[in-house]
Design a binder for these strands. Structure first.
Lengths: 246, 246
DNA sequence: TAGTGGTCTAGACCACTCG
DNA sequence: GAGTGGTCTAGACCACTAC
């Protein structure tokens, strides 16, 4: 009783620091503005640099800050609303502006994907890599798995691996009459290759969106999309216009 | 060329460590098993404890590990698929088993919520707290905002704040003919109160699900649900049965 | 080359759980 | 009270960016 907090437990320094910084960001900084460097901030608040970094990491996780090695720490703009659950097919022509085909190959999917696709483990399937761009920035990297049975017309085309082949696979997929889709979202950390595509360091927090496309009771394709968690707000059912929640 | 890696860049220790531990988890440990403590693991791998912890943090973020102060680090079970985007209304009777009303009050919502609700900032609305439970564990804490106009019958009931009132508000909401819903998902960190409800430390990574319920073109209610990111996989459109992606 | 954030160390102490 | 994970320090060096 009578302490400065209702709780008796002492608040960790980095947590308190985060609150102070968060308030400062609201009142004293504009989007894009560069903060003082970590060593100076740490000195100013009288903490070790590691402690200061712990607070910055939290704020970056919440999308408030953006840190770039060799450059500095800047105030991040509000997260972009990204539609991932609208009714349109993900390989429709209308998505061409957002999704850029990168390349395509044939490979055996991971065991978990093989199970989703309902193919035997080790069976090679078509893979398509795409990158999603918004406001000039890459926001997602996707790997699409398509069993050969879903795109019977592809074999006749005989296209070598590459971007052209990626477009061909997507073109064949458009012929399929989709019945539905199931999606799931979970937290993950960026693999090295995805991180590079997303202009992030390996291990950066990402939102993993797994989509299963079905037609006539069968699984036509499975997509695993890796969205930057720091800059993206995924929207479902036309929620793209929603402003962010406090 | 000729180095141990294709990349010339040296891999950070904690990243390599994470890979090694991840493989060990797959092959040598069962779900629920307790790992050696951090000091011993660090010694065994010849790194500082802070470095070892960096690897463990990543694995916990990916839902592979569960750490509890005073207890130890255990191998986490696969993430639970949690339906958040099915067609059913979130306050249907069928959800009663999953969602437990906690309490209810009347308060002015944050500015961002007021905007979503289309009420003037500072206008008091009904708030309802609920907790979602799965397999005996709390997995989500929700705060529901309901403008008085959406539940005109409530005033006549005159129920004091508490769980009974929460049930009353939900009961009145069931009278409303819902038209649709918009949802968004983003990464956040748990506030102190939510963290306590979710049996986590403040700042733990969470998935923030904001839902706007509409009827006749108007916003009936807005819900902000805080899901544990370490244990939950959010599913949309009947994807609850999907197994997790590699 | 100077300055930034990213990684790493070797310690210390604290808060918590449990026997 | 013993043992665990959580916080914190004061340094060091590295990788990257930009001038």
């Amino acid at each position: 009783m009578g302490t400065t907090q209702l709780d008796t437990v002492p608040e960790p320094k980095y947590w308190h620091l985060k609150t102070v910084l968060s308030d400062a960001l609201d009142s004293e900084f504009a989007v894009g503005e560069i903060l003082p460097n970590e060593r100076e901030l740490a000195a100013r608040f009288g903490v070790a640099r590691a402690t200061l970094r712990q607070a910055l990491e939290q704020l970056e996780l919440e999308g408030r800050l953006q840190r770039r090695r060799g450059v500095g720490t800047t105030v991040a703009p509000p997260r972009v609303g990204v539609a991932v659950g609208d009714r349109a097919h993900s390989w429709d022509d209308t998505d061409e502006a957002a999704w850029q085909p990168v390349d395509s190959a044939e490979a055996a999917p991971p065991a978990a994907i093989a199970r989703l696709l309902d193919v035997r483990p080790g069976t090679p399937v078509h893979t398509v890599r795409r990158t999603r761009v918004s406001h000039g920035q890459p926001i997602a990297a996707e790997l699409l798995y398509v069993p050969a049975a879903s795109v019977p017309g592809l074999a006749a085309l005989d296209i070598p691996p590459g971007a052209a082949r990626a477009r061909a696979v997507l073109g064949e997929l458009r012929r399929v009459e989709l019945e539905g889709r199931e999606q799931s979202v979970e937290l993950g950390s960026a693999r090295a290759d995805d991180a590079k595509r997303l202009d992030r360091l390996p291990g950066a927090p990402v939102l993993l969106v797994t989509t299963r496309y079905t037609a006539a009771g069968r699984t036509v394709a499975v997509a695993v999309a890796t969205y930057r968690a720091d800059t993206c707000r995924l929207t479902f059912g036309d929620g793209a216009g929603m402003v962010l929640a406090g």
